[in-house]
Design a protein around this nucleic acid. Structure first.
Length: 427
DNA sequence: TCTGGGGTCCTAGGACCC
DNA sequence: TCTGGGGTCCTAGGACCC
């Protein structure tokens, strides 16, 4: 007889801040925040910053004074570093557990069903060792929550983060009941403020309330998604662990501009840049696209300025991942929606109908695959991999790139650029 | 002055088919 | 006077996640 499912959620603590702290000991013990692209919002906070009452996802400028008065350090985001550190953490986990589902840059689920014979204490010890190994080999602290479903493992993880050992289990009924009775509805994975308000209006205010609610009512309020969460809270697994990632369906490359831009020439540069980035991402993931969208928008936070946003989507004659081809179509699309007289805040490229490079639908009337172009992309990718992305790029992406985002406080890319390696001085 | 970017899934409604 | 029922596919928009 198969044993009941056992799932562990590993979540890196204040991940971006932790990555920064690995390489910069001056950040230890101080309030530290990491900002989103363009230094816009606060997307990671050290425990000290959380203690100052700095909320997640809030605009940086609203809290700048508070942070400065507290001697806090704000950093621009350094995704190259975080992405690489994430790989290192997962490499440690892959080596210890056969079934791992990567959920995000800083979170993954482990299937520990096969380890159930260890018993609860044994599982706790196994996870404590795993956590210790990740910390020692990468410098990243984590919390691990163990339970019988994904939703419950999220709850267990919240407990783990607050515990001394950083590991918590929710496998026993009594412990689980007690926790769920005290857990606010909005603190459940998949239920945010908006749904929380609706559920509360029906008298459902805690996780225990949701677990015990009538199925028909939950179906009516939240649809099938809510019913799944309800069953997961009851300990019935409805969200299977996916060790093999399903293929990606959609991709977006977009950025806000560092400063508003007004001319078609700048827009063409910027959209070419996004198209080239998107194409490189496609090649890296061994994908092609056959539907390209381009969008632009003015600054919605400036309602007194004239507002305009638009988008256009086209089908490509053949699925492609060529930068040249995508740049050409993206510029064409941009020309069709650009209007003079506006101050633009953001533009981007979206790709739909992604397919694997190994499975492309051929067409008698479509142009043949351009081998010369493929070779060119290969050479570009290998140069950019070796010397850093952006080393070689298309002229249409612009030289000055004065629309580029702000990133004034970025730390060095310690692990992915030779010229930004950590320097250690010894006496 | 200053408000991110990149994803997923689900549902409702329209077009179309037999 | 009478005006079906059932199905698929696609898309836009809404909700959520980190």
């Amino acid at each position: 007889m198969p044993s009941a499912p056992c799932i562990a959620l590993v979540d890196c603590n204040s991940f971006y801040v932790s990555c920064e702290r690995v390489f910069n000991p001056n950040l230890a013990g101080k309030p530290v925040v990491v900002l989103s692209n363009n230094d816009g919002c606060i997307v990671a906070r050290s425990p000290e910053a959380k203690a100052l009452g700095i909320p997640m996802g809030s605009p940086y400028h609203k809290h700048k004074a508070t942070l400065q008065n507290a001697g806090a350090i704000a950093l621009s985001s350094n995704y190259e570093l975080y992405g690489d550190m994430s790989h290192r953490v997962y490499d440690v986990l892959f080596a210890s557990v056969p079934e791992v589902e990567i959920y995000s840059i800083d979170e993954c689920f482990l299937d520990l069903t096969g380890f159930a014979h260890l018993g609860t204490d044994g599982l706790m010890e196994f996870c404590a060792n795993l956590r210790e190994k990740v910390l020692r080999w990468t410098g990243i602290p984590t919390g691990i929550g163990i339970a019988s479903t994904k939703v419950l493992s999220k709850v267990a993880n919240q407990v783990a983060k607050k515990s001394v050992g950083g590991v918590a289990e929710l496998l026993t009924d009594e412990l689980r009941d007690r926790l769920l009775a005290n857990l606010a509805i909005e603190d459940i994975w998949g239920i945010n403020r908006r749904l929380g308000v609706r559920l509360r209006s029906h008298g459902i205010a805690t996780a225990a309330n949701l677990r015990d609610a009538p199925e028909a009512l939950i179906k009516q309020i939240m649809g099938i998604v809510g019913v799944r969460i309800m069953y997961e809270l009851r300990g019935l697994s409805c969200l299977p662990l996916e060790a093999i990632a399903p293929s990606q369906k959609h991709m977006i490359c977009s950025r806000s501009f560092g400063q508003p831009i007004t001319t078609m020439a700048q827009m063409h540069e910027s959209i070419s840049h996004h198209a080239a980035r998107a194409a490189a991402k496609l090649r890296h993931r061994k994908l092609r696209t056959s539907v390209l969208g381009v969008f632009l928008t003015t600054n919605r936070f400036q309602p007194n300025d004239p507002q305009y946003s638009n988008s256009v989507t086209i089908s490509l004659p053949t699925a492609t991942n060529s930068s040249q081809v995508l740049i050409r179509y993206a510029k064409f699309c941009m020309t069709s929606i650009f209007r003079d007289g506006f101050s633009y805040k953001k533009c981007g490229v979206s790709l739909n109908d992604l397919s694997s490079v190994d499975a492309v639908q051929l067409d008698f009337l479509a142009p043949a695959v351009d081998r010369h172009d493929e070779k060119l992309m290969e050479v570009m990718d290998s140069l950019n991999k070796r010397y850093g992305s952006g080393t070689i790029r298309f002229a249409s992406e612009g030289m000055k790139q004065d629309w580029k985002m702000r990133s004034d406080m970025r730390s060095p890319r310690y692990t992915t650029r030779w010229d930004e390696l950590l320097v250690v001085k010894a006496n």
